[in-house]
Design a protein around this nucleic acid. Structure first.
Lengths: 130, 130
DNA sequence: ATACATGCAAAGAATTTGCAGCTTG
DNA sequence: CAAGCTGCAAATTCTTTGCATGTAT
């Protein structure tokens, strides 16, 4: 999967680093500034491949376009339902709580938890003011 | 929001009770068996309204169609990656931990959490034996 | 009555895909 | 050179919406 390293893929990776949880279109527009020839299809293709390979994270948001995250590190996402912005959260307290949840779930369901995807939603402080 | 109680809405609610986390299309097909005239648009419209009103849960899944859950009650889903079985989990300990996570997130991100969708994955005890 | 809901079909948005041509190893 | 990737555009898939008509309160 993704054997060759194209200039496009590098630019897409770079865009993911520069932008904050961008959508495919946002990545497209960012890369476009320095490389106008790139196509949206290529962006989608690469994001899909990378997400599939576990190199990046896909954040589904239901009614809005998916967002992508280059941060693989254990952390949670909080999505503002109003403006669509994604906030990151992490910390040892959070990890602690998540670990306890895993344990509870393993006890009650017998499933050995290996993976979790969680999305929290609400309204951010800025949107609440409006 | 949804002032009138149409036969269609009742059938959609019933479908949500009968089916396990169905997609809009699955609801449509279920209702259709007893009421062939219902339209997919109506199903989407009602699911959207109900989700918006907090009467049901929308579960975004990224590349697949969204799923809907009539169970508003605090509970988690644990999916066996091997056999595909979905386990439900709930309890006051779990709620306690989730509440704490909400609080932490609100403190660190400023977002007032109103909704969360979480999916845990692993291998169930039965599949582990094989 | 009349405000709201429906069915239908068309529109819209997000994402995927087929294919010919260019690129990388 | 061959396998893979790109750009383009058309196709798919999921979801929403406009409008004329039906229906619950």
């Amino acid at each position: 999967m993704n054997k060759r390293y194209s200039a496009q893929k590098m630019m897409i990776e770079n865009a993911l680093k520069e932008l904050d949880h961008p959508t495919a279109t946002e990545v497209y527009e960012y890369v476009r500034e320095s490389y106008p020839n790139i196509s949206l299809g290529t962006v989608y293709r690469n994001l899909g491949i990378m997400a599939e390979a576990g190199e990046i994270l896909r954040i589904p948001s239901g009614q809005a376009p998916d967002r992508f995250d280059i941060n693989i590190h254990e952390h949670l996402h909080v999505l503002c339902a109003e403006c669509g912005q994604v906030f990151d959260a992490e910390g040892h307290q959070l990890e602690d709580l998540l670990g306890k949840i895993d344990k509870l779930l393993e006890e009650s369901t017998g499933v050995h938890i290996e993976d979790r995807s969680m999305l929290f939603q609400g309204v951010c402080s800025q949107c609440r003011k409006q």
